Simulated scan of single mutants.
Amino acid sequence: MTHDLLGQLFQFDNYGELLVLVRNSLLAGAVLGLTGGLVGVFVMARDMAFAVHAVSELSFAGAAAGLLFGVGVVTGSLAGSLTAALLIGLLGSRARDRNSIIAVLMPFGLGLGILCLALYTGRAANKFGLLTGQIVAVDNPRLHVLLVICGIVVVGLLLVWRPLTFLSIDAQVAEARGVPRLPLSIFFMVLLGLAVAVSVQIVGSLLVLSILVTPAAAALRVSASPLVVPLLSSLFAVVAMVGGIMLALGGSVPISPYVTTLSFLIYLSCRGAGWWRERESGRRRDTKVVA
């Protein structure tokens, strides 16, 4: 039984031939990892991890509606994500308001998405893929859309990197120095909405946090450098995405468990490394005091 279970999880027969078939998925995973890693830095700095989940729920609802009404999963996902992002950006300027809005949006988005999927009479795989991702769903048109959207997100982040970092670290001082708080917050939420919408296409709406939150959280465990953290976060996200796709290629289960497991293992490793570094630093301080 154990052998059969491992065979379902890991199957590498004809692996080279299968690898060619998911070339688009590997490229999409790498680009998505890079984008998610950069966005995740600001998600963590602004304490918006659950905002990502709220946006993903509305993205799921939009994608399910797009599937039901035939307007396209990508179009519906973008509409849902941007709607949630704008609502949170406009109405949730303060943490208490933001948390309330997120708590309202999450069940509404999930319920609406479930309703649309229940009414949809097409392939069951399409329904399941919205929740858990699809490894072979990245055709050339979808890849082009993903590359364009990720390019917009990355360029947008680079344009506002310094003021957004300042605003994320100390909003009151940044606002006193003339940084436009509300427009910049809304702009970031739009970028976040775009990143979530494209992530849903690969890892599914329920597991977006593994790309937009976990890698950045892991990077912050081993460094506080404003240069090193984005680089590590992007690297971790790319490893989780590409590694997850390659592990899932021969198996019979969706891609998402592999991506989330790799992402979680990276986080645990970084947490352990951070703990060890703090322990050694404390030992050195104690040795100096004794000396």
Rank of each mutant, 00 (worst) to 15 (best):
V239K: 07
A216C: 05
S185T: 04
M241K: 01
G178T: 09
P257H: 05
A248Y: 11
P163K: 08
S185G: 08
P226I: 03
L158W: 12
V213M: 13
I211S: 08
G156P: 00
V179T: 14
V173K: 13
I211Y: 09
V190M: 08
V259A: 00
M189E: 01
L184I: 02
A219S: 07
L247D: 07
V198S: 08
V229I: 06
I169R: 05
A217E: 11
P257K: 05
D170N: 05
P180E: 07
M189H: 06
R181T: 14
V228W: 03
V253I: 15
L164N: 04
S199E: 12
F188Y: 01
L231K: 10
V173W: 04
A176N: 12
V190A: 09
V228D: 06
L249V: 10
F188M: 01
A217G: 12
I255D: 01
T214Y: 08
Q172F: 10
M189P: 00
L159H: 01
A237V: 07
V228C: 07
T165E: 13
M246Y: 08
V239H: 09
A218L: 03
V229Y: 01
V173E: 11
L209C: 14
Q201R: 11
L192V: 12
T260W: 02
G250V: 11
I202Y: 11
P226R: 10
A176D: 06
S223W: 01
L235V: 14
S199P: 09
V179C: 09
G156T: 02
G244L: 01
F166D: 06
L262A: 01
S233A: 14
W161A: 11
L262H: 00
L158K: 02
A174L: 02
F166N: 07
T261R: 05
Y258K: 06
S168D: 08
I186W: 08
L207R: 09
R181F: 04
A197D: 14
L231R: 10
T260F: 01
V203L: 13
T165P: 07
R221C: 10
A176F: 10
M189R: 01
D170H: 00
